[in-house]
Amino acid sequence: MSKTFYSAYTCKNNLGDLIINKMQIEEYSKYGEVYVDFTGMPDNFKNILLNSDNPNIKDFTDTYGQPYRGKHFLQVINLLKKEGFTHFTKSPGPYAVLSLPLKKLIIRLIGALGYMAANFLGLKVFAFGIDLDYISNQPKWLKWFNIKYFSLYNALGLRSLKNYEECKNDLNNTKYVPDMAFLYPKQTCINTNRKQIAFSFRHVTETETLLAELKEILSIFVPKGYAVDFIFQVEEDRSFAQVLAKNLKEYNLNVSSQCIWYENLNTYSKYDYVFSNRLHVLLLAAKYGAIPFALISKDLKERKISNIFNSISLGYLMKHIGFTNKEQWIELLSNREAIKHEVNNALEYQKQICIKRIKDFYQQV
């Protein structure tokens, strides 16, 4: 039986982080015990991840009396070896690479010591469902450093095919492992006639361009009887939702008063379509039967949406703002059932890839 050490991390009140951590931990727990270090993490994150119905998921600090994060992390690595741990990993998502300036590089190298020590002591060091960008704006010597560092991992699971293609020639330990949100179970929703759409956007500098797009969408959907809500699953998006709604006040749009969290995830079951520039808003909405349409800007944070949607053959449900047309929204509305069928198939296919990649890794001798 495996014994996995898992260092958990989240941004404050970020439901996407919660879901990808929870799904990943629960999948790993099928193959043995998973001890999670929650140092510095909020209770509303920790309490949901510590599933009381799953005895294989445990609090590392409560069990062993010390956290991994901190000045004694190398001692903790030795403890892991002594206690029979077999695997070593941390939260999925974008991974920090070795980068300049020098102070930042030194801090990253100190953090890398834990992974180096775990590898040296024989633990299987791995990371699945991640983004890895050590190429952009990096001098050649620093790219070489990154390749050497990430070669220490026994396995790296990159969550887009584009990222996999970028890295596979440098790193022979990479595979395509889809985003962990695909492991979230598909929800059976009774309401099949959902005459509502939702907008959910993180702040973009091209606000006027986004507003023009939303007006175009509203001009198609509102006359067809659709009600429209602004929703958010990251608290920091609330103020931008209010700004957008104020500029679209002639449509009498509703701004949700409550941030979507784990307890009210079924909010998504109300919607036929969800338009967003947040990856996990789109993927979770799709799990509840909504058609996810990505409207993205030039912000580099949104590039992962394009990469992932193209990886799962749903690139036609993603457009850059300012490059759409009215006919596209008409087609989206008229082909609703066919699109929902394609989305469901894509979600299930990616889920099975994810399950198989994890199973194959844990069952390696």
Rank of each mutant, 00 (worst) to 15 (best):
L248C: 02
A290N: 08
Y251C: 07
E213M: 11
K287P: 09
K195G: 05
A227M: 11
Y251Q: 07
K298I: 04
K298A: 12
R238I: 08
L265M: 14
Y262E: 06
F240L: 11
K224I: 10
D229Y: 01
T267P: 01
V255M: 08
F232K: 00
R278A: 04
I231D: 00
N264I: 13
L210Q: 08
E250K: 13
Q242K: 15
L295Y: 07
V255G: 05
F201G: 02
V234L: 06
I296Q: 06
L218N: 08
L295C: 04
T267I: 08
Y268T: 00
S219N: 15
W261H: 12
L211G: 04
C259K: 11
K224M: 13
V274S: 11
L282V: 11
S269V: 00
S200A: 15
S256I: 03
E216N: 14
T267A: 06
P292H: 08
A294C: 13
L282M: 11
D272L: 11
Y273N: 05
R278G: 05
I217V: 14
K224E: 15
I231F: 01
N252L: 00
Y268R: 00
T209H: 03
V228P: 01
L218T: 02
Q258W: 03
S257H: 12
L284M: 14
H280Y: 10
N252P: 04
L283F: 04
L265Y: 02
E250Q: 12
R238T: 07
S239C: 09
I217H: 05
S269E: 12
T207V: 13
N266S: 14
I197D: 05
A245T: 01
A290L: 07
L244V: 06
L244Q: 04
F240Y: 15
K224L: 13
Y226S: 10
A294F: 12
S200N: 12
A245C: 09
P292E: 09
G289V: 03
T207K: 14
F230L: 06
C259R: 09
L211W: 01
H203V: 14
A286R: 03
Y271G: 10
N252V: 01
I296R: 04
T209Q: 04
I291E: 03
E263S: 14
D229C: 02
I217P: 08
L248E: 01
Y268V: 00
N247T: 01
Y268S: 00
